[in-house]
């Protein structure tokens, strides 16, 4: 027999379904392979992600206990297991489920504001050069050098502020703006929706409709980005985002710093872009409530 190795699966997201009648059987089409994540199709319009521990849990993530996934060349899936490169079996059955709901005990707005201030400090210091953090700290515009980069920064600034001013149509102009697989504009929108969700949990105001509207306006043909935004619109969060949000209520700068650092490690600029969107929208909501939307 050919020898197979079992890879430990740390967690499977609560939106990942195995064994249902719509489950995919057979080899899956791989969308993209990165060091820390492999995205693959289970249906034409649905994506699952195999991720490393450093990325952590998420609604559609399967966290494998390895430090790099760049070796993945093929993915086979049936109702009980995933097999990589025909030789590594991911042990789904004994894994834990990741719960992507957000549950905030505290309703203390002042505590949250204080947490946001600390969050902003860290973001100013630690965000990568070409991230959207320049929206929080204008001096960071210095990092944008070529004419194209400058135009990009200008548009990100313009459209994100339009959305923040209640002009929801600009969502579709922000979406897709920027470099990479999840452009800066998409991540900012993701951050916006997370802020709306947190506000809902804190105040009881319903932001679900606005989030759905933002998602509908932002839909495109980038399946990875759309998946992220879809879950955010439903109020389902990725582990690192969730950790950050919860840390803001703990009144402990060291914990916040640790959580922000982890989030900033996502993708190349994604973590910082999500953070920027979250911070801007949260500040807006703390000042003016939800009525302007």
């Amino acid at each position: 027999m050919s020898l197979s190795l079992v890879l430990k699966v740390n967690s499977v997201g609560d939106q990942v379904r195995f064994g249902g009648k719509h489950s995919h059987f057979g080899y899956c089409k791989i969308h993209s392979v990165f060091n820390n994540a492999v995205n693959f199709y289970i249906k034409r319009d649905a994506i699952l992600s195999l991720v490393t521990r450093s990325v952590g849990g998420g609604p559609n993530n399967i966290v494998i206990n390895v430090d790099s996934l760049s070796f993945v060349k093929s993915i086979y899936m049936d109702k009980s297991k995933i097999v990589l490169n025909d030789s590594f079996i991911c042990d789904i059955e004994s894994s834990l489920q990741y719960n992507s709901d957000l549950f905030i005990v505290s309703k203390d707005l002042e505590l949250f504001k204080k947490g946001l201030d600390k969050f902003e400090d860290i973001l100013r210091k630690k965000a990568p050069a070409l991230s959207a953090a320049f929206l929080v700290d204008k001096r960071r515009l210095n990092f944008f050098i070529t004419p194209f980069e400058k135009n990009l920064a200008y548009s990100l600034d313009l459209f994100s502020n339009e959305v923040l001013d209640g002009k929801l149509e600009s969502v579709s102009r922000l979406k897709g703006l920027g470099f990479g697989l999840t452009p800066q504009g998409d991540d900012i929108l993701d951050g916006f929706m997370i802020a709306l969700l947190v506000y809902e949990k804190l105040t009881g105001a319903n932001t679900g409709d606005i989030r759905k509207k933002i998602f509908n306006l932002s839909r495109g043909s980038n399946i990875i980005s759309d998946t992220f935004l879809y879950y955010a619109s439903l109020g389902l969060l990725y582990e690192r985002v969730k950790t950050l949000v919860l840390s803001l209520f703990l009144n402990d700068p060291a914990i916040i710093e640790n959580a922000v650092s982890k989030l900033l490690n996502i993708g190349e600029t994604s973590g910082a872009d999500i953070s920027t969107g979250f911070l801007l929208m949260s500040k807006k909501l703390m000042q003016g409530g939800i009525e302007w939307l």
């Binding site: 190795l5 079992v6 890879l7 430990k8 206990n65 390895v66 430090d67 790099s68 042990d91």
Partner: peptide, 12 residues
């Protein structure tokens, strides 16, 4: 990087 440690792989 070691994948969850050799021991884990061996156990599995």
């Amino acid at each position: 990087p070691p994948a969850g440690g050799d021991q884990e792989v061996m156990d599995a």
